[in-house]
């Protein structure tokens, strides 16, 4: 028997007994970041594929949601910072070894491209807004200009969306100290999940039947890919080192099993996939809205599981000999 205990009390807040430095703020941020990536990706892709008729909302209206969703995400990210006054420090440096530094700059790049996307589709997507501003001479000229480069802007948006989507996963997977995160599969998983939630959200909002149908088909494909990545991730974990096996145990028969298998895999992937399959076959249109909602919920639950479980996995785990709650008496 190995008995390994802390004989001096250690109870650093959010680090002991298990790490919980990142809470809902980060899960929401990663979810919204992925969603924003999906939004930017599909708005650009549909434009490039000339899907004006089949998917008019995707081509002309969707891009507006990108900066909005991302801004919400960045707000929660900001809320998470514990030394908030120094947030500007992200932008006085570029740290080539830090994924978070890349992320900070990717977020910054997202905005100009996203705004250009909106402007280049404003007249078609939001004609009443365009009419309001069209009389201001430089605005009209500006809109003319960006419409001319509409396709170029879309081409720019595709890599930024992919980078953002992958980044939300790489951010976690770069932490070698957290065995659950430390796999290259988190990047693709979060990218696919981000795209899937983006497609689902679009399907939810779009009015035109053909557009819903198109996005549902795309989403079904993405879910299949996502299931494959999840399978690879599990294989990777269950064949890994001891700390990874411990992490796998939390999924396969531990504190996260229910959330992972029931909520994420079943409700978030398999059920919507089935619904989408029936929808594509034209036999289940009455419960149309349920599939994208489940996909969105599943996408968020995936981020929660990844953030929470990942922090709990560790190389070293000590128990205190003494009851740390007694320290409350100090205050």
């Amino acid at each position: 028997m190995l008995e390994e205990i802390l004989v001096s009390v250690r109870s650093n807040p959010h680090i002991d007994p298990v790490m919980s430095v990142w809470g809902w703020e980060i899960s929401v941020y990663l979810f919204l970041g992925g969603l924003a990536a999906g939004i930017m990706f599909f708005s650009a892709l549909m434009l490039l594929l000339n899907k004006d008729d089949e998917a008019p909302f995707s081509v002309n209206g969707l891009a507006l949601l990108g900066p909005v969703v991302l801004s919400l995400g960045m707000t929660t990210l900001f809320l998470d910072l514990s030394h908030k006054l120094f947030v500007w420090r992200f932008y006085t440096t570029f740290e080539p070894t830090s994924p978070m530094s890349y992320g900070a700059w990717i977020l910054i790049l997202f905005y100009p491209v996203g705004i250009l996307q909106i402007l280049s589709t404003l007249r078609k997507g939001y004609p009443y807004v365009a009419n309001l501003v069209n009389d201001i001479p430089p605005v009209a000229g500006l809109l003319d200009l960006v419409e001319r480069y509409q396709r170029l802007i879309a081409w720019l948006a595709i890599p930024i969306a992919v980078a953002l989507g992958i980044y939300t996963g790489i951010l976690l997977s770069a932490f070698s100290a957290r065995p659950f995160w430390n796999t290259g599969l988190l990047g693709p998983l979060f990218l696919v999940s981000g795209l899937s939630t983006g497609a689902a959200l679009t399907a939810l909002i779009a009015r035109q039947h053909s557009e819903r149908r198109l996005l549902t088909r795309i989403d079904a494909g993405l879910i299949v890919v996502e299931l494959l990545v999840v399978a690879l991730l599990l294989i990777n974990l269950t064949t890994g080192s001891k700390p990874q096996l411990d992490a796998a145990a939390m999924l396969m028969g531990g504190s996260y099993t229910g959330w992972f298998w029931v909520v994420f895999v079943a409700l978030g992937l398999l059920v919507p996939l089935a619904l989408e399959y029936f929808e594509i076959r034209g036999s289940a249109s009455s419960i149309l809205m349920l599939a994208p909602v489940l996909v969105l919920v599943g996408g968020y639950v995936l981020r929660v599981i990844a953030v929470d479980l990942g922090q709990e996995t560790t190389w070293i785990n000590y128990q205190n000999e003494f009851n740390t709650q007694l320290l409350d008496r100090l205050h």
Partner: peptide
């Protein structure tokens, strides 16, 4: 003593497994 309390706030009862 608050400094030492933070180190070892209580005694424990050692019992064999």
């Amino acid at each position: 003593n608050p400094l030492l309390f933070q180190l070892a706030p209580e005694n424990t009862l050692w019992v064999n497994p």
